[in-house]
Computed example of a mutant assay.
Amino acid sequence: MVTVTGHAYPWDVIGDPSFPDRVRELGLTGVTLAASYHSTRAATPLHPRHQLVDARWAALYRPVRDSVWAPHRLRPGAAEWMTEADPFGVAADALRRAGVPVTAWIVLTHSTRLGSAHPDLAVTNCFGERYPYALCPANPQVRDYAATLTAEAVRDVPVDAVSLEACGQLGLAHLGHHEKTDDAWTANAARLLSICCCQGCQSAWRERGLDPGEVVDRLRADVHAEAARAPDPSPTPLTDPMAGPLLATRHAATDALRTQVLAALREVLPDAPVTLHANPDPWATGPSPGLTPTAAADVDALLVPAWPTGPASAEIVTRAARTGRPVDAYVTVLPPAAPDALADHVRRLRGAGATRFSLYHLGLAPAWRQRLFVEIVKAVHDD
């Protein structure tokens, strides 16, 4: 059976008694609800009480307990823009009482607030420039934070499943703060600038026989060399002898992060199915980090990015399906999606091997785009 769920924030549900009915009318099988999330300025065009929510920093949408977080260097912010003490708990309860299954959507290493306060734990490129929105999992404090965040996100809240986003390293792309970097680098340069050079990563390089100074110099030279080339639509594989150890370093940190997060989750929810936001490109960074050789075996399903409506999204699904895990295609009805192309896009993704679909975004989409959810559901179930 192919399932179709929709993403939402707690503020989309709280104060809107019609929200569960809308989910059912759209033909969705559940809601993936944010329990921890990065900063955002979110439209709420269908909400009866407000039109905009300014979530000013990455927050845990549960009570932030001093007894739990006091020993930790990293501590999540509380959602001070919400009047409820437990926004996720309130919203999840409202959905489940209405018969709508809930998946807890947990964002892990994406926090500008924490990266700015603790720059030594942020991803750093080969020029020494930090990405404050990106916490590097090579650092034990980051892994401890992510594991504790996961456990606290679902503590004492009945949920039907868990979805882990940014369970790995973010890179150059951020898509925020009125971004002015589009087309500034080739795809290969962006990949090189996403290789973290923080002290934690450099220590791991030494253990793999690399000289950090030589690595940084080589990365800088390669970035500058890329500046003389025409833009390329996709990166080519990195073939330098350094590439293998560099990727192995990132994957080892990602595996350590995921192992610790899943162990913490299992202490609280031993039987909850887990979906991992992932990309079959091993070098990918961002909300859907590149799959490591062991990642797929650790979880129940893979959610892969499929927002672009071209053939490349279907190829991502095909590659992810080769892991043997169910593939959840992440599809948006918002720009840059072309509304007229969505139905064919979804059929193509299903043909490529997607057995689940996650739709973005129930609260952000205005009324005229809500019909696209219905069209997607119909296309998913077309024979």
Rank of each mutant, 00 (worst) to 15 (best):
W105L: 13
P241R: 09
E129Q: 03
V223R: 05
H251C: 00
V123Y: 03
W185N: 01
L303K: 07
L349K: 02
A228K: 14
A34T: 08
A221H: 08
A35L: 04
T103K: 12
V159D: 04
A147Q: 09
R258I: 08
G213N: 07
R258K: 08
A301E: 06
D298K: 04
L175S: 15
P63T: 00
R97S: 08
G168I: 07
C198E: 13
V215T: 04
A295C: 04
H361I: 03
W205T: 06
D183R: 13
A248P: 09
P339Y: 02
K378E: 15
A263F: 08
V142I: 02
R24T: 07
P20S: 11
W205Y: 03
D281W: 04
E315R: 13
P71H: 12
D120Y: 02
V304T: 05
L302Y: 02
R113N: 07
G6C: 13
L247R: 11
H118S: 09
E214R: 15
R97W: 00
E267R: 14
A284G: 10
C198H: 12
V327Y: 00
D383Y: 01
G353M: 11
A98T: 08
A92H: 13
V223A: 05
V142Y: 04
P231T: 07
L349S: 14
A70S: 14
D232R: 02
P270F: 11
P270A: 11
L26N: 10
V374S: 14
I14T: 01
G363H: 01
D222R: 14
D328E: 14
R191T: 15
G89F: 09
A367T: 11
R229Q: 13
P241S: 08
W185D: 03
R75H: 10
E129V: 13
D120F: 06
N139M: 07
R369L: 09
L372T: 12
Q370C: 12
D298V: 05
Q169Y: 07
R369Q: 15
T29K: 14
P137K: 03
L219M: 05
G30E: 13
E214P: 09
A187T: 15
G99W: 04
A204R: 03
L121N: 00
S163K: 05
P17I: 10
T318D: 11
S39Q: 11
A78T: 15
L342G: 07
V68M: 10
T292A: 07
D183M: 08
P280V: 06
A329C: 08
W81C: 06
A117S: 12
R369V: 10
V142W: 02
H251L: 02
S163F: 10
Q51W: 05
R218D: 07
D93P: 03
A147K: 05
A321K: 10
A91C: 12
L52S: 10
G363R: 00
P231S: 06
A312T: 01
V374D: 12
A284P: 12
A243E: 11
L349T: 12
A263E: 14
D255A: 13
D232F: 01
H177Y: 01
Q260A: 09
G168N: 02
E226W: 01
R208H: 08
V102Q: 01
T83M: 06
D281A: 09
